[in-house]
Design a binder for these strands. Structure first.
Lengths: 127, 127
DNA sequence: TTGTTATTGCAACATTGTTGCATTTTATTT
DNA sequence: AAATAAAATGCAACAATGTTGCAATAACAA
């Protein structure tokens, strides 16, 4: 496997994502970093973080891509089989790690990844 | 409510999507139409078809947006609460209308839409 | 400290989606 | 059948998002 190195860009981006309660988009990350590194670098760092399983990629119903930290609850290789909630009001995407959907596919389908996004109004916005 | 009219563009696009066994992207539709209408028109027709509930929008794990026909099994207003399978080999997206996922959100969340995409290897490609 | 190579920055490009506006087309009304 | 209102289209221009090649830089193992 290819070596990977720790750089300020990677560290800062991972910190940002980890400290956020909601999933962040590329542009949100870029704004937060305030010129620390190039736009392209952010794309590449995000790819690496996903590759290394430190972060997961969430695709919104409108097609927007966001990134959220992985809370490794499972021991070795955690599954990303959980729900993301996307608020139509404030446009935040939240990981609901504890809600596990159940479903049953015809067995000829080999499942490798799961992406379950529910959209509507989040608790913050519905009050 | 705003009136809606039948045009060749709309008819052809809906026919394309209906006759396809897999979900189609904007560019795939554009290629198939072979210059029948403008790129922008396709976007607008697709929006209308989704609006009118004749077609549904599927967002892939890689962020790509595709469109699939709605098979109105339910009487009045069918739910789009079903699974889409995205094959990593042939990049086709298939609607598995019959597979209904079950899940339970904290009740403060108001659900309006659901998008459940599973990716892996489809039966065609795994043989 | 040095050498290898992963990582970055920059520039250029590709893809996807949106908006404004003048023109055309649909379908209703006269 | 002609007139009409507004829905739909085409075009041009723009915005956002993502990708690639390549030379320069930085991380880290020896």
């Amino acid at each position: 496997m290819k070596q990977t190195r720790n750089t300020t860009a990677k560290t800062e981006i991972l910190k940002l994502i980890s400290q956020s309660t909601v999933a962040l988009s590329h542009s949100e990350i870029q704004n937060n970093l305030d010129g620390l590194c190039d736009r392209v670098t952010i794309y590449r760092v995000l790819d690496r973080l996903v590759e290394e399983d430190l972060v997961h990629k969430v695709v919104n119903i409108d097609g927007g891509v966001k990134y959220a930290s992985c809370n490794h609850k499972e021991a070795v290789h955690h599954s990303h089989n959980h729900i993301h909630f996307s608020c139509e009001e404030c446009h935040t995407v939240t990981c609901l790690e504890d809600v596990k959907p159940s479903f049953e596919l015809p067995k000829r389908y080999q499942v490798k990844e799961v992406n379950f996004t529910v959209s509507g109004i989040c608790p913050e916005c519905s009050s």
